[in-house]
Design a protein around this nucleic acid. Structure first.
Lengths: 352, 352
DNA sequence: CTGAAAGCGCTTACAG
DNA sequence: CTGAAAGCGCTTACAG
């Protein structure tokens, strides 16, 4: 009974074939984009549409022996702002390729744990694994990476990862462009809050800031470069320190949005109006950027597209049984101008 | 060659059966938890472990004719804070049940578009669809809901949805408990920032606040109840208005974290110290709550567990071909106390 | 270019 | 409780 009912509603490749007056093979050929005669093509396509046929992906995978799943490593704390768009991109791609997504949690500090999670993923059938930022940088260092014949792709590492396929933006160029934009707005004293030295983005983002200043022949004032911890609090502290300088900055560019938000609130606490007396810019375009007032000028990653590309690389590698070539694929970032930045104030800031 | 290599590494149910000296059927029975003789069980389990066998889920699904996918509707703007943990919970469950997750984007305002997305999902093979907050409330109103025999589960609607299966927390009780906690901390003037009237949570959260005050026989001061728009800005504005009152509140409870964050910053702008001169509490435990300083006391949803449960309901309904019973499953919330709240200030606030 | 055959790895009835 | 048989819906070689 149950079986009968199930069967009654199944539109299979066979149903379509009969409807179109061809063999199931021809339907399969059309479905998979192989060359068929025009009239066959037309008949099949009509039947497909009329019957509202959907291929059974389970059958497809079983028959083709193809990759059935890819894995993603997740941080247990789930703190990362880009996680939702990353997962959305991942799901877009897994939906598209008809592969199952399996997830495993692993702490980012513990490489051993991360490798155990990767192995668990492969044991569960993952043909490849996506490595989020943080963990990918640590894992790229390990000797195991070279040995493995597993398909691994690093997502948004903070720097180039020799020997590992990765998808990222050019952090250096983005930071350089943001700094140039502030210079174009006539700011001449631009504070910079770096990432902690341990992160891959420390060097690339700070380097971009320095490069923009160098390009204009400007001197570096080391009082205007402070190290942050990527959180609101350290951004607040660094900004407060800079703003209390005898010769304070008219703009502050932070290595991420959380620190920029801290700078914004620090300015407000000191009675400094943003953007009229101080411009503030961040990096990452996290949800926080538009939650504050004024909303933050920041650097946007094409997170969804990056994740889609990464999964595509993974699926392709897994299907061909050859690990992805260890190259970095750069996707383009954009500078998002919002109300937190503007022309350098006419009235010079207090003090000095 | 390729085929051979693929085959060489496949550990199938047949391999296991030979290794254990039983038939494939017995292996299948053990795998599916059916009764077998103890010695058969033991032999199979040993073989399973020694061979590190993983079932091929594609084959499994094909053979059992089971549900192969469930769908999730996503808002194109992806703004929602709970999206990552929701997706993580969804993925935990889909991984566990071996079903494919497919996603479709649909605007939350447009019911027609939402229904089209649901149909697209089912056409692509989804046996059921998870409806996120916002859209589920709107869709529950439509006549189509009653007509459909599709498995639908509402995730975290702001209020009870008659006729639709849903998973949520008791917003009313949570708001009541938070308010009671503030009362226990000796606050006697507690401001409340509501959600906009159009949202399901407007009534439930405000109701909880009022109930807590009533329970202590306290009078309601309508100057302390202001409507917000769920964003930072409206929280800022509402808090600023209350704090400029002749008799300002010593605590402000906002219907979500974004508005609580706005209240926090408003207080700081006015030179009011949090928590020493003002306590601030939010709702939702979004990432923002711990990014600010002081971090926000708030109400936490078990988002991951809720999503897992919702997918479980969906899979079960789809597999049994009977829509999920239209009941609300409540999961327990918790009040997370952080540094933004504390005992009522000894020194009375300024003014009055 | 097309189709009949075999098989992907598992499960569902059905005999024993 | 156990196993031989058939089949899930598709694709891969292989003849025509």
């Amino acid at each position: 009974m149950k079986r009968a009912s199930r069967r009654s509603k199944a539109v299979t490749i066979r149903t379509v074939a009969k409807h179109a007056g061809v063999s199931p093979m021809s339907v399969s050929n059309v479905l998979n984009g192989r060359r068929v005669m025009p009239e066959t093509q037309a008949a099949v396509e009509r039947a497909l549409a009329e019957l509202d046929y959907t291929p059974n992906s389970a059958a497809r995978q079983l028959a083709s022996g193809g990759v059935t799943s890819v894995g993603v490593l997740l941080h247990p704390a789930l703190e990362q702002d880009f996680l939702s768009p990353m997962l959305v991109g991942v799901l877009n791609a897994t939906s598209k390729f008809g592969v199952q997504l399996i997830v495993e949690r692993a702490s980012y500090d513990d490489v051993t744990e991360a490798w155990a999670a990767v192995r668990a993923l492969t044991r569960r059938g993952a043909g490849g694994v996506l490595l989020p930022p943080g963990i990918c940088e640590v894992m790229a260092l390990g000797a195991e990476t070279a040995r493995t014949d597993l398909a691994l792709v690093a997502f948004a590492p903070g720097r180039d990862l020799p020997g590992m396929a990765s998808v990222r933006i050019d952090d250096f160029a983005a930071a350089r462009d943001m700094t140039s934009m502030l210079l174009d707005q006539r700011h001449r004293r631009i504070g910079f809050i770096t990432a902690p030295r341990s992160l891959g983005v420390f060097e690339s983002r700070r380097g971009g800031y320095l490069a923009a200043l160098h390009a204009r022949g400007m001197e570096i004032d080391h009082d205007l470069i402070l190290e942050g911890q990527m959180d609101f609090r350290s951004g607040f502290a660094a900004a407060a320190e800079m703003l209390n300088l005898a010769n304070p900055p008219t703009a502050i560019f932070a290595s991420n949005d959380d620190m920029a938000a801290g700078a914004l609130v620090a300015a407000r606490s000191l009675g400094i109006d943003v953007p009229n007396a101080l411009s503030v810019a961040g990096f990452d375009d996290t949800p926080l950027a538009t939650k504050l007032w004024p909303p933050l000028t920041t650097v946007r990653f094409p997170v969804i597209e990056m994740a889609e590309l990464a999964i595509e690389m993974l699926v392709e590698a897994a299907r061909s049984h050859v690990p992805p070539p260890p190259v970095t694929r750069y996707l383009s970032y954009s500078i998002v101008e919002r109300a937190s930045t503007g022309t350098e104030p006419k009235a010079s800031p207090p003090a000095s």
